[in-house]
Design a protein around this nucleic acid. Structure first.
Lengths: 143, 143
DNA sequence: GTTGAAATTGATAACCCGTCTCAAAAAGAA
DNA sequence: TTCTTTTTGAGACGGGTTATCAATTTCAAC
């Protein structure tokens, strides 16, 4: 699929450097992965079940972890599950979560992101991704 | 008379509001919990084994989750384990987490906190707590 | 202080997510 | 094509957490 040519190239380069092979399954999974902002292995398993009913869950886990090593994905532990974030997807958003009714509001704030970069640099880190969640009461639940 | 009177009060208030009971185990676990900045259930299990060899692991999990509901603790999933953070420990701190070696650096940034308040206010929220985790590579793992 | 309903505990079974195992299949260089 | 190496799929396995349930404890009402 040529619309993911860049990422396919990154993957192939990583495979070449580590004596790994390019397989039909890896191509299929990368293609599906790049269409999303983030996904769990289980979700992908069900999505791809239609295209290839014999694709094993273990293969999906192995491949998503491979993507992490290649720098295409980033694993994040959320609740009991692991989310695999699409690193090439730039529109990162954070969350305001109401502890009263569970409402979730998404937001983006460049100033906060800039300060995060500063903190990271000061500690010798290079940020790959982040997670910011604000818990509180929305206007309706406050009363 | 415990030196953690304030937190004990918060716990008792929460218990009262939810028809829950104050038990020897809950007091013991809260006391041990408040002495640390963050801890896993397993770690606490081993720590308290000396004081009470019959204290069950399930009770510790249940109680730490109770502390989360009472606002005294905050659960953070890292790798395969869950860390329970002591919210009252010298204010709130955030984390820089190395995706290479798992190293965790704690930091505090008033400017970020102020911007968080702004975002919340703009959306009609009052913040109770928050969670900020920056994932990336530390200086050693970058090479 | 006793009583009794309701909540809690401890031991362990069950559960879930993710990894490991291994024989069969596929990739890819010669 | 041949041959070596890697990958795959299916299920077993493992570690962390939660559910189960009988026995115990709490605590409010007597």
């Amino acid at each position: 699929m040529s619309k993911h040519a860049k990422e396919m190239g990154i993957l192939k380069e990583h495979l070449g450097k580590h004596q790994l092979k390019f397989t039909r399954q890896r191509e299929l999974i990368l293609d599906a992965f790049l269409k999303q902002e983030h996904i769990t292995a289980e979700e992908m398993y069900h999505q791809l079940a239609r295209k290839d009913p014999h694709l094993g869950l273990a293969t999906i886990y192995r491949t998503l972890n491979l993507f992490c090593e290649a720098g295409l994905a980033q694993a994040r532990h959320f609740g009991t599950q692991t989310q695999y974030d699409n690193v090439s997807h730039k529109g990162h958003h954070d969350h305001l979560i109401c502890t009263g009714c569970g409402k979730i509001v998404e937001f983006e704030n460049c100033d906060i992101e800039r300060l995060q970069e500063e903190v990271a640099t000061r500690n010798g880190f290079t940020i790959q991704t982040h997670r910011l969640e604000l818990y509180g009461l929305c206007s309706r639940c406050r009363h």
